[in-house]
């Protein structure tokens, strides 16, 4: 389920497309926030209806024998476009998936659940997995060197974001501080490269391999 982008508490049931500077943004919000924003469902529906009436009268005036069905058909693509969703976790969009067949992260499967399920049921043998399953216990993260580096990288991502933020706010002293921290982490990450490049068959075993062996024996 997707949460409202304004209050981040209620389920988002209203999806509004806004065109800002030629870019289409989709806003997912709950009815309450919509009311506050003066975008209540009733209003939106009303304006839709107005638009339709207007177009209908135009069409009838210009060509008498145009079928009504065509008018409703013409409405369809617009409705489909309004259905675009975005994954809260990775930012991948439903439209992008429709284009290249790829989602961005594990959470996408939940975020696009209804639409994706329809797609999967259409293309797959069934809709429930019945093959191999993972073991109950997994000793992930038990390699301290690897998990430390992962934490450092996460910290790096966070720092880079706050650097952008501080520059935007023109807090240059803070920015300089953050920049130093980033440089320090980058050096630390580089100094202990864990993926050795084997340029020739004679290359002796490197760090990772040696550590792996010691751990498991």
């Amino acid at each position: 389920m997707m949460l409202c982008q304004i209050c981040k508490a209620n389920p988002a049931t209203i999806h509004i497309q806004e065109i800002v500077n030629g870019e289409t943004n989709t806003l997912h919000i709950c009815p309450e926030c919509a009311k506050k924003r003066n975008l209540a469902e009733g209003n939106a529906a009303n304006s839709h209806f107005h638009e339709m009436l207007e177009r209908l009268t135009q069409v009838i005036a210009s060509s008498a024998d145009l079928k009504l069905a065509e008018l409703f058909d013409a409405k369809k693509p617009q409705e489909e476009e309004e259905q675009d969703l975005q994954c809260d976790v990775c930012g991948a969009s439903w439209h992008a998936y429709k284009k290249n067949g790829k989602v961005g992260c594990a959470a996408c499967y939940e975020q696009f659940s209804q639409l994706l399920l329809e797609d999967i049921e259409l293309n797959q043998h069934g809709s429930v997995h019945c093959g191999k399953t993972p073991p109950e216990t997994v000793e992930q993260w038990h390699d301290p060197a690897v998990s430390e580096r992962i934490n450092l990288r996460r910290e790096l991502e966070r720092l880079r974001k706050s650097l952008d933020e501080s520059i935007r706010r023109e807090e240059f002293e803070l920015a300089a501080e953050i920049r130093d921290k980033i440089a320090a982490i980058e050096t630390e990450l580089k100094s202990a490269e864990l993926i050795p490049d084997e340029s020739a068959p004679e290359t002796p075993p490197k760090k990772t391999r040696a550590r792996g062996r010691r751990k498991s024996s």
Binding site: K102, K132, T133
Partner: peptide
């Protein structure tokens, strides 16, 4: 891994096994 979909993949065309 997802209890219903199985192993999750970048392309839903591969999801499951």
């Amino acid at each position: 891994f997802h209890p219903r979909y199985g192993y999750l993949t970048g392309a839903p065309a591969l999801v499951g096994t």
